[in-house]
Nucleic acid binder design. Structure first.
Length: 271
DNA sequence: CGCTCGTTATCTGCAAGCAT
DNA sequence: ATGCTTGCAGATAACGAGCG
């Protein structure tokens, strides 16, 4: 198990938030798509970086890089199962106790959305899934059909702890409905008459991911501009310091000249 | 093209902790 | 005591890269 030295073995809310924030800035890394040789190095470096961040959080457990990697992998898997169950529920299957997605989970879905689609393409083609009315390429909805009882209960409760820092409204049915289909959107019926619902949902998820990426880029730009500003100030300070040093050197030269001429005068008087 | 290797994803079962 | 939840470990599958 984890080396938490008697502290909480549970991952804290702050830690989960940190992971998701980090993943939002590294979408390829989050999806586990860093497969090339160079990318693997990047992946390793990022896990070390992330592990350092997470282990420095005040509360929660401590893990090795492998431990956090495993945790993230399990987290994504549980989330996939949960989404699958929610889809079944929505499709009319009576699945009691399946909680709606939390804000955190929605955010992770927005980050991973496009990659879930890529990864699950084979499953979608090979499985004649329950939702016959759904397009087979909606990979998010094509998780394995054989979910045993244990997985079911696990998935039902997966990441329930994440709601700890959020208000109860996250669990409202409205909140969940708002994740992929905005029923209040007046354009929705018109759009659905043109495009299939699955395509609209996929595009919405893609847009969400793009938005998160753009926000991360914006933050990065702000940091970069502040860094540049600080560099400018530093350069200005150095320039002034150099000016002061030049002035000082000139003064010293003049003093030396004066002293030298005074010494010469004194020596002539002595003669 | 097919094989091997390394990494990551996924599945399953178990253990610890907690609530009743 | 019992059942549930959560996290972890181990096994296996899947994938991409490199090589002959």
């Amino acid at each position: 198990m984890s080396d938490n030295n008697g502290k909480s073995r549970l991952v804290s809310y702050e830690q989960v938030k940190s992971i998701i924030d980090f993943m939002a800035q590294h979408v390829e890394f989050a999806s586990g798509n860093l497969r090339s040789l160079e990318a693997r190095h990047t992946s390793k470096r990022l896990w070390e970086e992330l592990a350092k961040i997470l282990n420095s959080c005040r509360g929660g457990t401590k893990k090795t890089t492998d431990g956090w990697s495993k945790y993230w992998s399990d987290f994504k898997n549980k989330l996939k199962n949960k989404v699958w169950l929610l889809k079944r529920k929505k499709a009319g299957n009576s699945l009691k106790g399946v909680r709606p997605l939390t804000k955190m989970e929605k955010r992770v879905l927005a980050i991973l959305g496009p990659y879930y689609e890529k990864k699950k393409s084979k499953d979608a083609d090979s499985h004649s899934s329950f939702q016959n009315n759904m397009h087979p390429k909606v990979k998010l909805e094509t998780f394995q059909e054989t979910v045993h009882v244990n997985s079911f209960s696990k998935a039902n409760n997966a990441t329930r702890r994440l709601s700890g820092g959020e208000d109860d409204s996250d669990y409202s049915a409205e909140s969940f409905e708002g994740e992929y289909t905005n029923d209040n959107d007046s354009n929705a019926p018109a759009l659905q008459s043109i495009y299939p619902k699955w395509l609209i949902e996929v595009e919405k998820k893609r847009a969400d991911a793009e938005l998160i990426r753009a926000k991360a880029e914006e933050q990065r730009a702000v940091v970069a501009s502040k860094t540049a500003e600080a560099s400018l100030l530093q350069a200005e300070a150095l320039r002034r310091l150099a000016d002061a040093a030049t002035t000082q050197a000139e003064a010293i030269t003049r003093i030396a000249g004066i002293l030298e001429s005074r010494a010469q005068r004194n020596s002539m008087l002595d003669l």
